[in-house]
Simulated scan of single mutants.
Amino acid sequence: MFSIRQGLRTASRHGVRALSTQPARAAPRYAGAAAAAAGVAAFALYQANTAVKMEGKPTIAGEHKTVSERSFIMIKPDGVSRQLVGKIIDKFESRGYKLVALKTVTPSKELAQEHYADLSSRPFFPGLVAYITSGVPVVAMVWEGKDVIKQGRRIVGATNPLDADPGSVRGQYAVSVGRNLIHASDSFDSATKEIGLWFKENELSQYEPAAWGWIMADN
């Protein structure tokens, strides 16, 4: 009778790997480490290539010059008192920008001074702080979308309403530079500072409007 032992000897002579009851030899320990290192290197290369395409480090103001860019817009006490809030919001919504945060705030003197810190040496600074802290609330907002900082400034209009384009907020609704209705961030750094001053990260909504793709697509 052909025995198992004979069969194994025959298989061995013909170059066939014999079965064994011993545990299989473990793969070298360094193989897994090498694979992990290769993965880390590939991911680092991907990050490096991606970083080249970025305009700036993402902050609470999103990423500069992308659809995630954000700007801080504030309707001042005169805009609230004149009940222009809805009309001003419509200017931004009609353009296609996304409202990601909104709240009414009655600013403290400390908040107003910090917000306008870059103007603290100007002679009109005390009057500006008194105006913003008059007791009438302001409407603090964050808007998001492609080039929203620059375009937001265009929607708002020149600081002096007499120089503002007729279709802008100030050009349509304001006359005096001392009562020019609205504030808008003038740079990505300013947007980062101002959004962080007026809002917490968890107060900013993450969503996509139904028409977002129709508005922000490049092709």
Rank of each mutant, 00 (worst) to 15 (best):
Q22N: 11
R5E: 09
Y30V: 09
G32Y: 04
A35G: 06
S20F: 03
R9D: 11
L19M: 11
P23V: 01
R25Q: 14
R25S: 13
I4F: 09
T21C: 03
R25Y: 11
A27L: 14
A34N: 10
A11F: 04
R5D: 07
P23C: 00
R17D: 07
Q22C: 08
A27H: 02
R25P: 06
A36S: 12
Y30N: 13
Q6I: 01
G15T: 00
R5P: 02
A31G: 02
A24L: 13
A35D: 05
A36Y: 07
G15Q: 02
R17Q: 07
A18R: 05
R25E: 12
V16A: 11
A24Y: 10
G15W: 00
R17N: 07
Y30Q: 11
T21L: 07
G7A: 14
A11D: 02
A33T: 05
A35E: 12
A35H: 07
S12K: 15
P28S: 07
A33I: 07
A31H: 09
A31D: 10
A27M: 08
T21K: 07
A34V: 09
S12E: 14
L8S: 02
A11R: 04
P28R: 08
P28C: 03
P28W: 04
V16C: 06
A24W: 06
R25M: 11
V16M: 08
Q22P: 01
Q6E: 14
G15C: 01
S12L: 08
Q6W: 03
Q6V: 00
S20P: 01
A11P: 03
A24S: 12
I4A: 05
A35Y: 06
R29Q: 11
G15S: 02
R13L: 15
T10Y: 11
A11L: 15
L8W: 01
R13V: 06
R29P: 07
H14E: 12
P28Q: 01
R13T: 12
T10I: 15
